[in-house]
């Protein structure tokens, strides 16, 4: 018994140390954001909100934020719509080459991003398209869609097929069934897919770096500012704001995912293994 206790203590300690490792950089972010020194190092010199103030007056930042929001909203919407179709198709029908096609769609999930960026760049140049925010959207849709499919796929798998049949049986059309039954039931999945893809797109750097034209997105802007040590504290402030927003979005996504799980759980009672 004491042996087991030792092992548990050891594991507990390890878990705590590991979490410290995971959170170390994240915790530093707000610390330096409020530090009054321009040098990003210890010891801290004093508390200030000056760096947040700087953010309000930087026009280039504002346009980068606007660009990023545009890209992230578009990419999230498009990839979620695509994901909706793909997940629904996979959940309900089996079609020839299903595995192959799905494999291709999911491939960006495991490809190094730089490869996707390079590939897209070549394609775009060949097609004679000029680089713009829309080319970034295209790239982001490519990497976001697999996540959408994964999230929505589990929402669809948890959906009892007789739900749709019941609606159809009660006289509804296919579209009416989708509107009145299918969509409301997978809505939590749709929302969490939107939030996740939005977050991914907002944070993505390499593809945006390669594919953007003169309009830069937020990560590209941050990258460009990192060369100037004087700008670093305000980047820390910016990062803190982003961190807060992302965590809020993630908590929202998680709440919706759970709500969808309970909804389904009440019906199928076995939702284990869906994680």
């Amino acid at each position: 018994m004491s042996n087991r206790r030792n092992k548990l203590n050891w594991l507990n300690t390890y878990a705590v140390v590991y979490m410290v490792f995971l959170y170390a950089p994240v915790v530093l972010l707000p610390i330096f954001a409020f530090n009054s020194s321009t040098i990003i190092a210890f010891p801290l010199s004093g508390f200030t909100t000056e760096w947040f103030g700087v953010l309000w007056t930087t026009d280039a930042l504002h346009s980068a934020v606007r660009n990023s929001l545009l890209v992230a909203v578009s990419a999230a919407t498009i990839s979620t719509v695509l994901g909706l179709f793909a997940a629904r198709a996979v959940a309900r029908y089996s079609f020839p080459l299903e595995r192959g096609i799905m494999g291709l769609i999911m491939l960006p999930l495991v490809l190094p991003e730089i490869i996707i960026a390079v590939a897209l760049l070549i394609v775009l140049i060949q097609l004679g398209l000029s680089l713009s925010l829309w080319t970034v959207v295209l790239g982001h849709v490519l990497i976001c869609t697999p996540f959408s499919i994964a999230v929505l796929g589990s929402a669809f798998r948890g959906l009892d097929p007789s739900m749709e049949e019941a609606s159809f049986d009660l006289g509804e059309t296919r579209w009416g069934t989708f509107r009145r039954v299918t969509f409301p039931l997978v809505l939590p999945g749709v929302i969490s897919s939107l939030l996740i893809t939005f977050t991914i797109s907002l944070d993505e750097f390499i593809i945006a770096f390669f594919l953007t034209g003169t309009d830069v997105t937020l990560p590209v802007y941050i990258w460009s500012q990192m060369r100037f040590p004087a700008k670093l504290p305000s980047i820390m402030a910016l990062g803190t704001i982003l961190l807060g927003l992302t965590v809020a979005l993630l908590i929202l996504a998680e709440i919706f995912r759970r709500r969808s799980a309970t909804r389904r759980g009440l019906d199928a009672s076995t939702t284990e293994g869906l994680v």
């Binding site: 007789s162 019941a166 409301p184 009440l266």
Partner: peptide, 20 residues
């Protein structure tokens, strides 16, 4: 003639009660 146009209605094994 598809299910939505037939004069039949079904009680499903899982009941398929719309949870929402």
């Amino acid at each position: 003639i598809a299910a939505n146009h037939r004069p039949t209605n079904m009680v499903f094994q899982s009941y398929a009660i719309f949870p929402h």
